[in-house]
Design a protein around this nucleic acid. Structure first.
Lengths: 238, 238, 238, 238
DNA sequence: AATGAATGAGGGTTCATTCAT
DNA sequence: TATGAATGAACCCTCATTCAT
C-alpha cells in the first residue's frame, strides 16, 4: 500500500484519538491499531507522538483556513456577504469535521509548539475578518478615520464568538458545557443560521463604532440615544 | 502544622500544577514537592488525583462565582451598572487568579465529573447575566414581550465573549494564542476597560433586539436603517 | 484505660484482620482503627507488625493447646475416651474461635518465625495423640513391639485429618473449598459428631496396625483376610 | 524469542515466586527479573498480576489433574490398583513439582477467583476417587446398598489425607511444619510407599464401612470385634 | 497514656519508543 | 514496506513506621 494512503489513515486515526481523548491520554498503541497498522510503521512515517500531533494540527489548520478562504473568495459579492459566507463556511466545516476542530481546540492547551500553530492560524483568520469588516465599513460610507484598531477589536470579538459557538456545536467535546441549552433545542442550528446570528451581532457592533455610540459606566444626564448621524447609506441596515 | 494550612498549601500547589500542565501531565510527585510535603500526605488529605483535581475545581468555581456575585450585589445601582460591575469583578478575578481560571478551563475538557462542575457554574452565571439584562431592558422602556429566549441568547454570547477575553488575559495558558496582540500592547487592559468594552457590545446587541433590527443575507433594496421606533428613553444610550 | 485491656483489644482486632485478609493484606491502619486506638499506640505496645502477628499466633497457639489439653485431662477415662474428648475439644475450639484458628492457618505459610511456632504446636499435639494411641493399643492387649513409629504415623494422619475437617468447618477461610459438600448439608456437624467420625477412622487404622493387615500393590493369589491373630480383647472393637 | 517460549518462562518464574512468597509478597519486578525479561513484557503477555496468578493456578491445576488421570487410566487393572496408581501419580507429581503444588495451596487462601478454581479441581478429584472406591467395594462383594454418601465421605477423607501428606512432602512451604519428622528421617518416602500407606488407611476404612463397624463414645460391655459378616471375597484383604 | 502529623520505600501498571527481521 | 518482540522511565497509590506533643 502506497505511503500516502497509509499516512492518511494514520492521520485520520490520530485525529480521532486526539480529539476524543486529548494529547496525553491518546495512546500510540490505540492510534496504530485504529489505523490498522503496526506501531513501528507509525514511527517510521511520523517520527514521534509530538510530530504526529503536529501533523494533525497542521492538516486541520490547513483544512479550516482553506474552507474559510474558499467561502470568502466568491466574486461579485459585497463585503458583508463575503463575511457571512466565510462564517457559514466556518460553521459548516466545524460541523462536518468535529474531530479536526477538536484537535485544534486541544492543541491550544498543549503548550509551545502546538499552541503557536493555532495562534498563527487565528491571526490569519482575524486578518481576513478585519479586512472584510473594514471594507464593509467603507462601503457603508463610514469615515475612513475609523480607527483600524477598533475594527480589529471587533474582528477579534467576532472570531471569539464564532469559536464559542462552534465549540457549542461540537457536541463531542462540549456536550456538557451548554447543557442547559442542549436540553431545550432538539437540533443544532444550521451553519447559515448561526452565521446570520453572528452577522447580526457584528453588524450592531460595527454600526455602533461608526456612530461613535458608547456605553459608559458613569450615568450621565444625557444618555439617551445619540441623534443618528448621517444614516449609513449602504448595506448595514438597522 | 495544622491540617487546614497544609491542605491549602496542597490545593495551591495543585492548582498551579494543573493550570500549567493540565490534569494528565501534572504529576502528584511534583504537586507534593511544590506543596513542600511528601506524596503520602497528599493522599492522606485528598484521597486521589481525581479528588484533588475536583477539590481544585470546586474551590475555583466557588471563588469565581463569589467574586462575580459580590460585584453585582452592590445596592442602589441600575441594572446595567450592576452588570458592568459583575464583569469588572470577573476580569479582575481572572487577572488576579490566572491559575485558578486555567484550572476551570482545563476541567472543561477533562470529562464527566469535572466538566459537569464547570457547566453548572456557567449555567449559574448565565442566569445572573440574563436576569440583569432583562432588568436593564425593562428599565430602558423595552416592551416586555421581548422574548426571554433572545435575551438569554445575548447573555450566552456575552458570557462566551467574556470567557474569550479572560482567556486572552490569562497569559499563562494563552500566551501564544493572541501572540499578535500580546506583542503589540505592552500592558493588558484593566479589568474596568475590558468590562466597558464588553458592555458596549452587549448594549449594542440589546438595542438591536429591542429595535427588532436584523441583518439578513439577502440584499434587499431597502436595507437602510430601519426607522428607529420609540427611542429608548433610559440608560442604554447610543 | 489499663494497658492489658488495650492490648487485648488490639490483639482481638489484629486476629480478626489477619484471619480475614492474611498477614500481608491486613493493614496496621485497619487494625488500629478496629481496635479503637491510634496507630502509634499499637506500635508502643506491640513493636511492629511482625511482633503483633507473632503475639496473635502465640496467643492462639496457647488457647488451642490449652483447649485440647483440658479435654484430655479428665480422670478416670480410658485412653480412647480421652482421645475422643481431646478431639471434641479441638473441634469445639475451632468452631468457637474461627478467626484464631485461621490465624494459625495463615501463619503456616508466612515463613520463618511464624511457621516454626505452629510447627512446634503441632509437634506437641502429635505427641499427645501418639501417647494416647499407644496407651489405647496397650490397653487393648496389643503386643508392645508394635512399632512406635507406626503409631506415630497414625497419629500424624489423625492430626492431619482433624486439621482438614476443622478447615472445612471454618467457613470463613474455606467456604469455597468444599463447596460441593456445603451445598448438601445445611448445618455443620457438631464437634462431638466430627470427633466420633475421626475416632472411627483412627480405630480402624489402629486395629489394622495391630492385626498386621496390610494392603499391598501386588495382587497375590492369597490376598484374602489374614487370619486374625489374637483378637483384640479390649475396647477397640470391630 | 517466540512468544510461547517467553510466556512459559514467565509462568515458570511466577510459579516459583508465588510458591515461595505467596501472592501478595511476590513482586512483579522479581518475577520479571527471574524470567529474564522486563516488567512491561510480563504485562504485555499476561495482563495483570491477577491474571498471571490465575494462569499459574490453571496451569498447575491442569498438570495435577492430568497426572492423576493418567495414573488411573491404565487398562486391565482392578479398581484398587487404579486408585493406588492415581495416588502414586499424585505424590510423584507433588514431589516433582513442589512449586506448582504450593501455588495451588496458596490459591486456596487468596479469595474468590482463585479459591474457586482449586475447589473445582478438588471436586473433580474427589469424584474420581469416589468412583474408584465404589467400584472397589462392589468388586469386593460389598452389598450395593452401601450408602454412596459414606463412600463419598471416605473419599473426602482420603483426599484430605493425601493433601496433608503432599504438603509434608513439599519441603519448600512446609519445611518447618513437620520439623520433628524431617529431622528424624533422612529421605522422604517414595511416592509408591506413601501411596501404599494411604491405601492401607483407606482400605481399613472401606472394610469398616462394609462391616458396619463403628467406634462409639459410650463404652458398652460388648465392644469386642463384631462377628465378621460374609468375609470379603475379593481383593481387599485384611 | 495517647495522638495528629508526616514520610521512605516500594508495588502495580502504562507508555512512548526502538531493535532485528 | 512492515512487524513481532522488547524496554527505560515514570506515574498513581499504599503501607509500615516514627516524631513531637
Amino acid at each position: 500500500m502506497p505511503r500516502e494512503v497509509r499516512e492518511r489513515q494514520m492521520l485520520d486515526a490520530a485525529v480521532a484519538a486526539f480529539a476524543r481523548h486529548g494529547y496525553q491520554a491518546a495512546s500510540m498503541d490505540d492510534i496504530a491499531e485504529a489505523a490498522g497498522v503496526s506501531k513501528p510503521l507509525v514511527y517510521l512515517y511520523l517520527k514521534s507522538k509530538e510530530d504526529l500531533f503536529m501533523a494533525c494540527v497542521r492538516r486541520e489548520v490547513g483544512a479550516l483556513v482553506a474552507a474559510v478562504r474558499e467561502g470568502t473568495r466568491a466574486r461579485g459579492l459585497t463585503a458583508d456577504q463575503q463575511l457571512w459566507r466565510g462564517l457559514t463556511a466556518f460553521f459548516a466545516h466545524t460541523a462536518a469535521r468535529p474531530d479536526g476542530v477538536a484537535v485544534l481546540y486541544r492543541a491550544r492547551t498543549q503548550g509551545e509548539p502546538f499552541a503557536r500553530e493555532v495562534a498563527a492560524m487565528r491571526v490569519e483568520v482575524v486578518a481576513i475578518v478585519t479586512a472584510l469588516l473594514g471594507q464593509a465599513a467603507k462601503d457603508a460610507g463610514c469615515p475612513s478615520e475609523l480607527a483600524e484598531r477598533e475594527v480589529s477589536g471587533l474582528a477579534h470579538a467576532l472570531v471569539g464568538a464564532a469559536e464559542s459557538l462552534a465549540e457549542w456545536a461540537n457536541s463531542r467535546t462540549a456536550e456538557h458545557f451548554f447543557a442547559d441549552e442542549a436540553a431545550g433545542s432538539t437540533t443544532a442550528p444550521s451553519a447559515k443560521e448561526t452565521a446570520a446570528t453572528l452577522m447580526n451581532f457584528c453588524w450592531a457592533g460595527l454600526e455602533n463604532l461608526m456612530k461613535g455610540a458608547r456605553w459608559t459606566p458613569a450615568p450621565g444626564p444625557a444618555r439617551g440615544p445619540a441623534p443618528a448621524p448621517a444614516p449609513a447609506r449602504g448595506r448595514p441596515g438597522g
